[in-house]
Computed example of a mutant assay.
Amino acid sequence: MSFSQELRTESEVIFQGIFEHPYVDGLGKGDVPKGALIHYVKADFEYLNAFINIYGLAIAKSSNREDMAYFYEQIGFVLNSEVHPHNNLCRVAGVAYDDLQGYPLPPTADHYVSHMKSAAQQGSMGELLAALLPCPWTYLEIGHYLIDKYKPEPDHPFYDWITFYATEEVESITTELREKLDQWAQNVGETEKDKARQAFIKSCQLEYAFWEMAYTQEEWPFQVATK
């Protein structure tokens, strides 16, 4: 069993929790509260900006041009492709995408971003890859899970969102990240692999928490006016 498959097996309970979360299930049913859609897009826009930053740090850690080119291409995917599922949610919510950009991260999303940046800045390439991997991997499986369970037709309100994350492109991103992590794991000891394992599991936990954050429309305890 590969290292990445070991991580997936160990995180099964978290993946199942994500599939069963009312926000994710609501996407399949075609029924998510408008406020939750808006809160998700606000947070995810800034989260993906941070994801781009992590890819930049991955380029800096890369020792060959093949890896540099890969992470550079992933920056383009986030910038040019991830807008499509966001636009689907905005269309259903009846709001303009541009109006949901530039908001501060809610506590859970802020914690997730800090976790990824810490892994990228202070950890090994393996920790960086392990911290990144749960995002595309959980979304890929969510897309397939919702297609299998609800079999959405083109008139489904979240058809574009669901089918986007079940595409070969997202599967390719997940597979390549897994392969890079597995290759790294073949050349390091158990201590280094355990650090990557903890980074992966924490990101999985925070993927679940991100859905909960959006569904409950989590905010900071106090709103403080700033100049």
Rank of each mutant, 00 (worst) to 15 (best):
I201L: 10
C204H: 02
A166F: 01
R178V: 06
A130M: 04
K202R: 04
L128V: 02
C135K: 09
E212H: 15
G123K: 10
E153M: 13
M125R: 08
H156S: 06
Y145G: 00
P134H: 03
E179Q: 15
T216E: 03
T216N: 05
Y139F: 11
E190S: 12
E171P: 02
Y139Q: 05
T108A: 05
V188F: 09
A209G: 07
S203M: 07
A130R: 02
G143E: 01
S124V: 11
K202S: 00
Q122T: 11
E176G: 01
V170P: 00
L146Q: 10
A130Y: 00
H115F: 12
S114F: 01
E218P: 07
R178F: 08
D155H: 13
R197G: 11
A120G: 00
W137F: 07
Y208T: 06
T174Y: 08
Q183D: 15
E207R: 08
G123Q: 12
T174R: 03
I142F: 08
G126V: 11
T163N: 14
Q183C: 15
L133C: 04
T191G: 07
H115D: 07
T191A: 15
D160R: 12
V113C: 03
M213C: 15
I201W: 08
L132D: 05
Q217Y: 04
C204Q: 03
Q183A: 15
Q205M: 01
L140E: 09
K195T: 13
L132W: 04
L129E: 00
T167S: 14
R197Q: 11
A130H: 00
A131K: 04
Q186I: 03
E171N: 13
E141G: 06
E168R: 08
Q122S: 10
T138L: 01
K117E: 12
L146A: 10
E207F: 05
A209D: 08
I147Y: 08
Q183Y: 15
I147A: 06
H156I: 02
G189K: 06
Y139P: 02
M125L: 14
E176S: 14
S118C: 14
T167F: 06
L133V: 03
E207W: 06
V188G: 05
E169T: 08
T175D: 10
E218D: 10
S114L: 09
I142D: 07
I162G: 02
T191N: 13
A199D: 07
F158S: 09
H115M: 13
F164P: 02
G143W: 01
K117M: 15
S118D: 14
F200G: 02
P157R: 05
A166C: 05
H144D: 13
C135F: 09
G123T: 05
Y215T: 02
K151F: 11
I173T: 07
K193I: 09
K180Y: 06
E218Y: 03
F210C: 01
A185V: 02
V170W: 07
P136C: 07
L132Q: 10
H115E: 09
M213R: 04
A185M: 00
M125Q: 11
E212A: 04
M116K: 13
P134W: 04
